[in-house]
Amino acid sequence: MNAPPPPALAVTNLTHAYGARNALEDVTFSTPQGRFTVLLGLNGAGKTTLFSLITRLYSAQSGEINIFGVNISRQPSAALRQLGVVFQSRTLDLELSLIQNLLYHAALHGIEPAKARILGLAALERAGLLGRAQDKARTLSGGQMRRVEILRALMHAPRLLLLDEPTVGLDIKARADLIAQVRTLVKEQGLSVLWTTHLIDEIAHDDEIIILHQGRILASGRADSIIEKSGAATISDAFALITGNHAERLQT
């Protein structure tokens, strides 16, 4: 008999406080393998704290995080190797060329330089940026930088990709392209994705959704079933009902 596959990401009873203020309170959720999961929350909901804990910038005061069943505190190396991350702030080294940025990241993951170069050039080619491999990262547009950051996060072939508000600061076209790029990865390569956002229009009806509000998980499940359960007509209304917030506060 086969045990069910572990979730791509499982967060259990996670609580974290800064001083007296609880940023996360007993947070439990899991994201299925090979799916596009959206972590939805307003600014200040605790998304950044959650993200810092999953990427092990610091450890949670209580609770557990598992990536494909590997505990991040007990086996950080094995857990981090399955994880690709795109941070909210721009993290390309602007002084280095695109290929140098990719090679640096590959080295941080112990990938042989010769192999890294082949992987990096192939990735740039797929993204239509091969001609710019030698250009400095600072010459890229915001949308291009994000695409390169995604290529970089995938250099070590992780199975779970985390993206923290990746569309912030992008124009409509760049946003749409970016979402399409990541959705394609999920569809074609079976990548598991956790996408955090406060923008409701980035959600598709069959996405997995986790609603984080003031440090607590208020709902999780498929977008359409959350809408149905809440008795709302749209995800935006559902969010307002669930969080008791006015829909205007959630940008679309």
Binding site: T55, L108, G110
Partner: peptide, 9 residues
């Protein structure tokens, strides 16, 4: 942060 998410200790 990109440095610290490397799997090395």
């Amino acid at each position: 942060r990109t440095l610290l998410i490397s799997p090395f200790p």
